[in-house]
Design a binder for these strands. Structure first.
Lengths: 142, 142
DNA sequence: TCTTGACTTAGAGCGCGCTCAAACTCGTAG
DNA sequence: CTACGAGTTTGAGCGCGCTCTAAGTCAAGA
């Protein structure tokens, strides 16, 4: 698979794929005889996983650390696991924080809802003027 | 309250507070006769709210939009509410995404746990060599 | 043969959100 | 009186994660 297809299939741009390779987040890809990158479909699994780390806010430098451990292969499992576990905890903490913020947001939005309700209540006390357009006996009442 | 104290109480740095004022996220603060910012405690509420927006990933440009609506005062409530509701939805979506990633992370970590378990099982089949240090009859057994 | 377009490289540039530096002014304690 | 510490301004610089440019190579189709 060429870089263009990988881009399409991974959701990254070709630019980003090259950038990731440059910094070591993706392995140095095999090239065909005209120096073009030729990918195996298995790279998609790795990119997808990197995407999850990214989504969950892991900085690239930590992904790099993980990638390096992975490259070093067996004997690094405990360290990789520890890294992921630390990350998992930070994600959990962040989710909790977000949920707390959501509550505040709900309250705030509720406040605006009340304001709007008060406005409606107030509107409801207004004289006919505001209701005029609704008018009965209009020739356009269907 | 001077900027130093506000910094301490808000968790922002004085630099950041000035920066926020410069870009319009914080109102132009009253100055004392020697041009120093003098804050009312009420600013803390606003800073805290901005913090929640920030925590939940709202870009500064959107906070600015909200801040401007707020400055314009009444008549902008519906728009402010809509802005917060849109944001709330995006936060909820993000939380869902994070939770999905957490599941993947759990699986991945579980994979490492199994590897380690297999290693332990393997270790358990090893001859005494590995158990030696536990040895009874040691002179140092208290 | 010529053109097209997908690819290559090294390196510059960008948007974001700060963060800091330089040079200055004050008010107060010793 | 002087030294200190906390403040002021404008503007430059930084770390992150891309994103794009320029100039070139190559293979396949008209």
């Amino acid at each position: 698979m060429k870089i263009g297809e990988l881009a399409r299939r991974s959701g990254l741009t070709a630019h980003t794929i090259r950038y990731y390779e440059r910094i070591g987040l993706l392995p140095y890809a095999d090239r065909d005889r005209s120096s073009r990158r030729d990918y195996d479909a298995s790279i998609l699994t790795w990119i997808e996983f990197l995407g999850r780390l990214k989504t969950t806010g892991m900085p690239i430098r930590d992904m790099l650390l993980y990638a390096e451990l992975r490259d070093r292969g067996s004997g690094t499992e405990a360290e990789r696991r520890a890294l992921l576990e630390r990350h998992r905890e930070s994600v959990r903490a962040h989710v909790d924080e977000l949920n707390a913020c959501l509550l505040v947001l709900d309250t705030k939005i509720g406040g605006y809802a009340e304001t709007e309700q008060r406005m409606k209540d107030y509107d409801a006390t207004l004289p006919e003027r505001r209701r005029k357009p609704v008018g009965a006996r209009s020739t356009r009442t269907r």
